[in-house]
Design a protein around this nucleic acid. Structure first.
Length: 271
DNA sequence: AATCGCGCCTGACGGC
DNA sequence: TGCCGTCAGGCGCGAT
């Protein structure tokens, strides 16, 4: 469930605890994440100093001089910084124990997340090398979406959620951004105008920025017990509001499954 | 090459 | 109270 804003907030939360610190031990209680946590993680990360806490899409990258831990929170993953001797809970699968007695603790009840290790350039890793641009960087704009979508028959909502197109736009924020842009989520991506894509790119930026801001002001202290995942309580205009009044026109917000995902939109405002 | 649909997993929730 | 079915959800991957 964490979308990009939640991952970015997690990154900012853990960074001060990790940066420059040495990993003194890696405790893997359950390696059965989306892919098994590789033995190389413990073997090669132990003893290394964390030189950077970066993010690419929804992946967190813990860089060291010898390699990078690639972390994805999946749907239910969360991170907390705890005292290393804090008893682990049922779903606390991995600890990265840090010098000075703290540990970065990964909890993931549904185990959709992943924790991998790579020696080389993490951005060249198979999971990262073909990712689309970051939605909050300049490369991502209406013209980019327009050009890439020509000839594509896939629904624009699925197009927007394709991490090869742009990273970090999940189900909730896709619905919200399409509403802001006035685009019907089922419209073929190749049949959306340039002007609409300009609005869509702005909409994506707006909802993601607002969520990051909300995360920053929610005062989540990653060294305590409240590192739980969850969407920030930003105002959602259509998501989950099926049957309720559209805030723009007063009509009814609709829910409909698109590409196996529930989607929410106002049929009057979005075409 | 583009698109579709599956499966992973468990907590929450609704119905009986 | 408890049991059971359903849903949610990111995303890589195999099939078409």
């Amino acid at each position: 469930m964490p979308e990009l804003p939640e991952v970015e907030t997690a990154r900012r939360g853990i960074e001060p605890h990790l940066l420059g610190r040495r990993v003194t031990a890696v405790t893997v209680r359950d390696r059965r994440l989306r892919w098994p946590v590789p033995p190389a993680l413990k073997r090669e990360l132990t003893g290394q100093r964390i030189t950077q806490v970066a993010r690419r899409g929804k992946y967190l990258l813990l860089r060291t001089d010898s390699g990078t831990a690639i972390l994805h929170l999946g749907m239910s993953g969360s991170l907390r910084v705890v005292m290393a001797d804090t008893p682990p809970g049922k779903h606390d699968h991995v600890d990265l124990v840090l010098e000075h007695g703290c540990a970065l603790r990964l909890r993931d009840p549904r185990r959709f997340g992943s924790l991998l290790w790579t020696r080389g350039d993490a951005l060249a890793h198979a999971l990262l090398k073909d990712l689309g641009p970051e939605p909050l960087e300049a490369e991502f704009d209406g013209g980019y979406l327009f050009d890439l979508s020509r000839g594509r028959s896939v629904a624009v909502k699925n197009f927007l959620m394709d991490s090869h197109v742009v990273v970090g736009v999940g189900n909730i924020y896709a619905s919200e951004a399409l509403f802001l842009a006035g685009i019907h989520p089922k419209r073929a991506a190749g049949r959306v105008s340039r002007a609409s894509y300009v609005k869509l790119a702005k909409g994506v930026r707006r909802v993601l920025s607002a969520a990051i801001k909300a995360g920053g002001t929610t005062l989540r202290d990653f060294s305590r017990e409240d590192g739980e995942p969850g969407y920030f309580s930003q105002h959602l205009r259509v998501y989950g509001r099926d049957g309720k009044a559209c805030e723009r026109c007063g009509g009814r917000v609709i829910a409909s499954v698109i590409g196996q995902r529930n989607s929410y939109y106002c049929p009057k405002c979005q075409s």
